[in-house]
């Protein structure tokens, strides 16, 4: 017969030397070279499990040890077991409890009186593989939870019926100033300025309640310290433990909005300057050009006209000077470049 050549590391916790001997024999029957460590009491087992140099693939556990028994024993072993699959060994008398122990976190149970080498081997392989999947599943779940909690942008989940916060991430607590506990005690209405609430209620009423409930929009929110911020909200409906909730991603665009306002403002001022250039500046200039042209006509300009022309040439020149000073004054009031807006390089230059 071909034996399993894998390097299994097995801990058997069993106080009965006869049973222990049989288990070892059964294991060696199917596995070429197992590393079998045995413990005869809970105390001994806990010493072995707490020793970080030894890693086990699986633990077989007898449910009645001299120093601990039953549920307490299972709890204690699970606590120090580092997620290694635990298979409970039991007699007929304890079979009901063994079935229940699956709820406590035990991977499997085996009935001693019915045990064969093959059944033991099958249980070992099955529970080791299952354990690996469970660890992978846990890691994947953790990765998703991390995506939420470690997201650099504020995110939260709220109950679409009560509007209560169900979960918020670190970025949200940091940005809004409320602690995690404070958030969970609040509804989404409480992070808005009062005057925004009627608008929000309207939006909430018109929200689609199906899974295509994706929403994007701009809203005003209020931090704990009272600061009102402009946020871009992206949200979606998600299923969470049998309940439909809404997940929100809030992007604070206050700076960006202010920047755009500043640009619009600047644009207005530039338009005004352009208007002044084409209308106001042009008026005295046109006068100057016309007057000079008349003087250019030579001697046929009457003397009294000449006086008028010289006076008006000077007036027009003065007017032009005033206008240009005024424009320069307006241009210096365009303050956009005096404020720092940190968006990185948005000009592409």
């Amino acid at each position: 017969m071909i034996k399993d050549k894998s390097n299994y590391s097995i801990l058997i916790i069993e106080d009965n030397p006869g049973d222990l001997f049989i288990f070892q024999e059964y294991l060696r029957d199917q596995i070429l070279n197992p590393t079998i460590v045995s413990a005869h009491s809970f105390e001994e087992a806990s010493k072995i499990l707490k020793d970080d140099t030894q890693k086990f693939d699986i633990v077989f556990l007898d449910l009645s040890l001299p120093d601990k028994k039953g549920a307490t024993l299972i709890h204690e072993i699970l606590k120090i077991g580092k997620k290694v699959p635990i298979v409970v060994l039991t007699g007929y008398s304890d079979i009901q409890f063994s079935i229940e122990s699956l709820h406590l976190g035990v991977s499997d149970y085996l009935i001693k009186d019915e045990l064969t080498a093959l059944a033991l081997y099958k249980s070992l392989r099955y529970n080791i593989e299952r354990g690996k999947y469970l660890v992978q599943l846990e890691q994947s779940e953790k990765r998703y939870i991390d995506l939420f909690h470690l997201s650099p942008q504020p995110m939260w989940i709220y109950d679409i019926d009560t509007l209560k916060f169900l979960d918020v991430n670190d970025a949200a607590t940091k940005h809004y100033g409320y602690s995690y506990e404070e958030f969970l005690d609040m509804t989404i209405l409480e992070i808005r300025p009062k005057e925004e609430i009627p608008t929000l209620n309207k939006v909430l009423q018109s929200m689609p309640l199906n899974h295509s409930g994706k929403i994007k929009g701009f809203y005003k929110h209020q931090k704990k310290d009272g600061t009102v911020i402009e946020v871009e909200i992206t949200s979606n409906l998600v299923s969470r433990v049998g309940k439909t909730v809404r997940i929100i991603l809030a992007n604070d665009v206050t700076d960006r909005v202010q920047y755009i306002k500043a640009i619009i403002d600047q644009n207005e001022k530039l338009k005004e300057i352009a208007w002044v250039q084409s209308h106001v500046v042009r008026a005295p200039l046109a006068r100057l050009m016309g007057l000079v042209k008349i003087l250019d006509g030579g001697n046929d300009v009457p003397e009294k006209d000449k006086n008028f022309i010289y006076k008006e040439l000077l007036n027009s020149a003065d007017e032009l000077d005033d206008i240009i000073r005024d424009i320069s004054d307006k241009a210096s009031k365009i303050e956009i470049n005096n404020t720092d807006y940190d968006f990185g390089d948005i000009t592409g230059r």
Partner: peptide, 12 residues
């Protein structure tokens, strides 16, 4: 409304 304008146009 500009007397200079009136003068110029009248002149030319």
């Amino acid at each position: 409304d500009d007397p200079v304008g009136q003068y110029l146009h009248n002149n030319i």
